[in-house]
Amino acid sequence: MVNVSIARRYARALLDVAAEGQRIDAVAEQLLSFVTAFEKSRELSDVLLNPAYTRTQRSQVVEALMKMMGTVEPALANTLRLLVDRNRLIYLPDIARAYRDMADARSGRARGVVTSAAPMTPEALEALRKNLQQLTQRNVVLETRVDPSLLGGVSAQVGSVLYDGSVRTQLEQMRRELKQL
């Protein structure tokens, strides 16, 4: 089991340093890119996590990956080096999640997922985002998903709150009401 407090500690420290340079979002993007590369490449994950590789070999791989990414924020580069030195790269995905959550909280953002039966037009998505912003009083960043089983309408989850306007849910509600009669 991953130790969440370790991930939070590193994420908080990285956020504090990034905030000093007003680079919170830039660090978040680069951290996500690094984690994506880490998770997509089985070979990269093996080198970074397998104890058969030395700390020097891991460090060389991380440095090469940072060089491939281009200009890496100094705070992130130092954090990655520290994780290699302390053999804690396994926590990187959790650090990235904790960092994103802390950065969102600091900047008043809320993340949400919108699920629709068919792909939504950009205009409809923007109108939904504005409505959700009014409801939550936060800047809402939406991720979209398509689920044909909804039959129609949309459901949106922002944080722990679900706003369900799907046809499937409405039909289920009518079915329950008719059964009670």
Rank of each mutant, 00 (worst) to 15 (best):
T54H: 08
R106W: 04
D101Q: 14
D164M: 01
R86Q: 13
S166C: 11
E143N: 10
R88T: 08
D85Y: 12
E143H: 15
D104P: 08
D164E: 07
R176I: 01
L132H: 07
K130I: 05
M120G: 11
Q60E: 15
R100D: 04
E177T: 01
T115Y: 08
D147R: 03
A105R: 05
R109Y: 14
G152M: 03
R168D: 04
E177W: 05
L132K: 05
I90S: 11
R138P: 06
S116M: 03
N139P: 10
L135T: 07
T56G: 11
N87G: 14
G152H: 07
L128F: 02
E63R: 10
S59R: 14
T79F: 01
R100V: 10
E63T: 08
E177Y: 08
Y163E: 10
E172K: 13
R88Y: 03
M102A: 13
P74C: 04
T71H: 12
E172F: 06
M66A: 08
P74I: 00
Y99V: 00
R138Y: 09
M69P: 06
T144W: 03
Y91Q: 08
V84K: 12
A156Y: 08
Q60G: 12
G108A: 05
N87L: 09
D147C: 03
A103L: 07
R86W: 00
A156R: 07
E73N: 14
L178N: 08
V161I: 13
R145T: 13
R88A: 01
N139W: 09
V167I: 04
K130A: 15
T56N: 09
S166G: 00
R129E: 14
N78A: 05
Y99M: 08
G159H: 12
A156M: 08
V146H: 10
K130D: 09
T71C: 04
T169W: 06
T115N: 05
L83I: 05
R97P: 02
S160C: 02
G153Y: 09
Q133G: 06
R175Q: 15
A118K: 12
L65K: 14
Q60F: 08
V154T: 01
T79N: 01
Q137I: 03
T136N: 07
L135W: 13
V72Q: 05
R100T: 04
S107L: 13
Q60M: 14
L162D: 04
E143V: 15
D94A: 13
V72S: 11
E177P: 04
Q157A: 10
